[in-house]
Amino acid sequence: MKLALVTHNVIRGDGQGRVNYQLARHALARGHEVLLLADQVEPDLLERGARWLRIHPRVQKPHLLKVAEFTQRTSALVRRVRDEVDILHANGYVLDEPHHLNTSHFVHAAWLHSSVRASEVTGRLQSTYQWLYTAANARWEQRAYRQARLVAAVSEPVRADLLATGLPPEHVVTVPNGVDLEEFRPGREPRATWGLPEDRPLALFVGGIRTGRKNLDTVLAALREVPGLHLAVVGDVRGSPFPALADRLGVADRVSFLGFRDDVARLLRASDLFVFPSRYETFALVVLEALASGVPVVTARSVGAASLVTPECGVVLPNPEDAAALSRAMRSLVEDAPLRERMGLRAREVAREHGWAQMAEAYFRLYERLADSSIR
């Protein structure tokens, strides 16, 4: 099979890019030919035999123009190489040509009307640009999805968002993202590496903390009612309001802001629970990474990956704004070490069903189903 992947990046350090990296890697391991139409590509894929047609937009800012140029150039390339490939797999609005499969990682039409989006921006100019960017992408995405024979949603919430835009149910399938079961594995790491206390339970929070979307403010408020718990926060603190908020709430002595980190796998092994009640998340790979690490998860229904969190391995809050419910969930885990251990064991079992190999296999089954479909 000759597979063409169309996406901005095929790299491990990017959520969508990592999914495509794994698809390319598994396809090459199976002996398939892989063509990458992308801006950035991991060198090891080229060493394994992938072919790369680089699309590097001349315009980098504003991002809206970068997206438009990227799609214009990929579409021109696809018209040239269409006869060379068996499967053409795009990701969102990256292609303005008919194709077999499109993976939806984010639905801009849903984000356009989200109250969370409105709270993310400040200032009239920024607000106007963000609205324009989201509105344009919502329109462009719909065009792209309708040119695909099939659309794969990365979570059930994304599938619901796609159906709400008018796509027929038979046009949309769900393929959850995967996780590296070797990198993210159970174990124990000494906390002294990060200056974290060893003598009390440790919760970990990972996400962007320069705005309120990830909901660290509610976590900090809930922390006041869980006095035995220490919280480690991974996220860029430059311009973040949350260190000051922790101080005002009187919990600063129990919160360690670690900045941006590339050793989250080790931090998860040093933690007793993972807390992530984000206000809006189409999937959140880090939730699956926590499960794979054998760490109980406290999250919210507004997180796409929450559908993987069963009562045996974590707690899913109906409302991410409910600080009282969040504090109760954290306190139940802090006060019951055997419960944390049982949940951790079950978390790993759940994650085993969602490794990268299982995700890739689900996509290969779709490829086989679509291989004989005409996309002209």
Rank of each mutant, 00 (worst) to 15 (best):
K2P: 11
L5Q: 06
T7N: 14
V10C: 11
R18V: 06
Y21W: 07
R25Q: 15
H26Y: 12
H26Q: 11
V34P: 06
Q40V: 12
E42G: 13
L46I: 12
E47H: 14
E47D: 13
R48I: 05
W52E: 01
R54E: 13
R54N: 07
P57C: 04
K61S: 12
P62T: 05
V67D: 15
F70D: 06
R73A: 15
A76N: 11
R82Y: 08
E84D: 14
V85I: 12
A90G: 15
G92Q: 06
L95P: 07
H99W: 01
L101Y: 02
V107I: 09
H108Y: 14
L112R: 14
H113I: 10
S114L: 04
S114Y: 02
E120S: 13
R124Y: 07
Y129N: 01
Q130T: 11
W131N: 11
W131F: 12
L132M: 13
A138T: 03
W140D: 13
W140S: 12
Q142E: 14
R143S: 15
L150M: 10
V151E: 03
V151W: 02
P157E: 05
L162F: 04
L162P: 03
L163P: 00
L163Y: 01
T165Q: 07
T165F: 07
T165N: 09
T165R: 07
L167S: 06
V172Y: 05
T174S: 08
P176D: 00
N177K: 03
F184N: 00
F184C: 01
E189F: 14
P190E: 05
R191Q: 05
A192W: 12
L196T: 04
P201D: 00
P201N: 03
P201I: 01
F205P: 00
N215Q: 01
L216E: 00
L216I: 04
T218C: 08
V219M: 04
L223W: 03
R224D: 05
R224N: 07
L229I: 00
L231W: 05
L231D: 03
V234Q: 04
D236F: 05
R238E: 07
A244Q: 07
V251A: 07
V251N: 07
S256Y: 05
S256T: 09
L267T: 04
L268H: 10
S271T: 06
P277D: 10
P277K: 10
Y280M: 14
E281N: 08
V287L: 10
E289N: 08
G294D: 10
G294F: 08
V295I: 10
V298A: 06
T299Q: 01
S307T: 15
L308V: 02
V309H: 09
V309E: 09
V309F: 09
V309C: 09
T310H: 12
T310V: 12
T310A: 13
V316P: 01
V316N: 03
N319Y: 06
N319L: 08
P320I: 04
A323C: 11
R331K: 09
V334R: 06
A337E: 15
P338D: 09
R342A: 12
M343D: 11
G344L: 01
E353V: 09
H354M: 12
H354A: 11
A360C: 01
A360S: 01
E361R: 04
A362K: 13
Y363F: 02
Y367M: 00
R369E: 13
A371F: 03
S373R: 15
S373V: 14
S374M: 10
R376T: 15
